[in-house]
């Protein structure tokens, strides 16, 4: 019997090659997180010995973990692929935007501006991303080829029908398509694939000691220079790891003893809390938070 990972891998490679075949200026959004690292691995299988038919693009919020940024730079250099980085701070200055405020200032909404700017700057017609449908229920609704208008907006009520393995990427100039090759993968599938393919990851996915602040919801936030803490905040040192690598201001760590990929697979198999639920502060705001962000041009 065929292994399901072979099936998911074949589907993702097929989708990546469709992007290369259908678009003039695609890009792969690469953050140094596990999902986009898997995308890069899949792109190697899809296009080597040729170069990737797209650059790697990172929207740097300025709140990223150093470990993820270093990993991003070294992987791009090792592969000899082009890496384009655009910074949210520059967009804030250029577009005279209000920076994020509060104890945990999240630039999550602001990064949409930078993303739309970089799409315009390079005239990208397709952006490949590592979003998965199991992450969140608005994402569960999105097509593999998700057409966005010139403002980057997703219209969930007017999605194109998407049948079999036939992807329609026809668009007008100015529009773009967001493409999600690992739509059908779950968090556990990603880890099983990382194990099978022996894919290297930044160290923050594995257990380490870290100074953390405990939030009012009991989440553990890395103590870092971007937080606006006061004397009521308690700093504790915990053994933690990250299930998802986002901004230091809105991504929480989980207590963990997982040293290896096998440990992580065992941990996730037993976990009673979802990936985003455990780690994201931004989704707690409302049940339609993600749908609203996507309508505004977010990934």
């Amino acid at each position: 019997m065929k292994d399901y990972l072979d099936e998911l891998e074949a589907e993702a490679i097929y989708i990546l090659r469709e992007v290369a075949g259908q678009f003039d200026r695609p890009a792969l959004l690469f953050s140094g997180g596990k999902d986009s690292i898997c995308l890069v691995h899949l792109a190697l299988k899809a296009f080597r010995p040729g170069k990737f038919p797209f650059p790697l693009v990172h929207v740097d919020t300025g709140h990223n973990f150093r470990e993820a940024l270093d990993f991003r730079d070294s992987l791009a250099a090792e592969l000899g692929e082009q890496l384009i980085v655009r910074n949210v701070v520059d967009t804030i200055a250029k577009n005279k935007l209000q920076d994020a405020k509060g104890k945990f200032p999240s630039r999550n909404a602001l990064q949409t501006h930078t993303l739309l700017d970089v799409i315009e700057e390079f005239e990208f017609d397709a952006c490949i991303g590592g979003a998965r449908r199991d992450e969140e229920k608005a994402r569960a609704k999105e097509r593999v080829f998700s057409v966005r208008d010139e403002f980057g907006q997703w219209d969930p009520k007017l999605q194109r029908p998407e049948l079999w393995s036939i992807y329609n990427g026809k668009i007008e100039k100015g529009e773009n398509v967001r493409v999600f090759p690992i739509s059908n993968w779950t968090e556990l599938d990603v880890w099983n694939y990382i194990k099978r393919e022996n894919i290297q990851l930044p160290q923050i996915y594995f257990t380490h000691e870290r100074e953390c602040v405990i939030t009012e919801h009991g989440q553990l936030m890395a103590n870092n220079e971007f937080l606006n803490l006061d004397e009521t905040d308690r700093i504790v040192t915990k053994k933690v790891r990250y299930r998802t690598v986002g901004d230091m201001t809105c991504t929480a760590a989980v207590e963990s003893e997982a040293f290896t990929v096998d440990d992580i697979i065992a941990e996730i198999s037993d976990a009673k809390i979802s990936e985003r639920g455990a780690t994201r502060m931004d989704d707690r705001i409302s049940e339609a938070a993600m749908e609203d962000r996507k309508k505004g041009g977010y990934f």
Binding site: D134, A140, K141, P156, K157, Q159, S183, N184, T186
Partner: peptide, 8 residues
Amino acid sequence: TIDVAYKY
């Protein structure tokens, strides 16, 4: 239900 939702 208006559009397909995928569940795993």
